[in-house]
Nucleic acid binder design. Sequence first.
DNA 1: GGCAACCCGGTACCTGACTACAGGGCGTTA
DNA 2: TAACGCCCTGTAGTCAGGTACCGGGTTGCC
Lengths: 134, 134
Amino acid sequence: MSTALTTGEVADRAGVNLQTVRYYERRGLIPEPPRSAGGFRQYGPDAVRRIRFVKRAQELGFSLDEVDELLTLRADADGQAAEVRELALAKVDDIAGKIRDLERMRASLDALAAACGGQGSTADCSILHALDDD
Amino acid sequence: MSTALTTGEVADRAGVNLQTVRYYERRGLIPEPPRSAGGFRQYGPDAVRRIRFVKRAQELGFSLDEVDELLTLRADADGQAAEVRELALAKVDDIAGKIRDLERMRASLDALAAACGGQGSTADCSILHALDDD
DNA sequence: GGCAACCCGGTACCTGACTACAGGGCGTTA
DNA sequence: TAACGCCCTGTAGTCAGGTACCGGGTTGCC
């Protein structure tokens, strides 16, 4: 009659696959919960919040290794907010770099598509010729 | 004394790993070259250009499957430049979507980092609290 | 007590683009 | 003809983040 949740219930509430819950446990992202006499995991409601934390951090671009760092910092009584801020700023740089890369691609492709009238056969296609240049 | 190139020479000239050349052959991105009596691949200079084509298309964001499509269109005598243009424009959209995703991430992280003074312990860290929200 | 629904651990598979390794053969030069 | 470097095939491993499957055990409800 306790409020313990099974793995499936945690997965449902967190909006992830059951296998994902076990995967996160293997990765150390969520603590090993107590077990029932029969070996079933018995989670408290914290587990759901923990998985949501992971998912939100992922949405912000953090890898699971980085999420692990965030969780470690959070768990560390001596952890400084400045370190978390550092990770966030590093990630912002990271993302900015990816955006720059993608913008370069987009600009190049835009230019190619604009130069290409889309007329005639591929033998005359300026896009293909550009890719083929030496 | 012919100008035939070995796999390693092609790889060097195209700036890729030898294994990559064979991988591209398995994927059908480069045609199977003739062989020497002993079984060595004998490439013409086209092979190097072909691999560079692949690499350039990749730099523009095309996957190898998509590069294959481009090559197929190019090889097709009836291929229309308009189809290549379509692929390029679709890729532009694709890239634009990724940029939007990344910009959302960056904006969120920027806001979190700005709100976080980086003072005090992680217990007070507004970034961690944001990730922990329900 | 029967039965469906669920969970267990362990292992294997997925995508994408390579990259590495093992064990053996070829090519060229001395 | 020996030696050395390069090439051959085939298989397996890498990264990230899961997801699927299997044979079996557990829970909970009627």
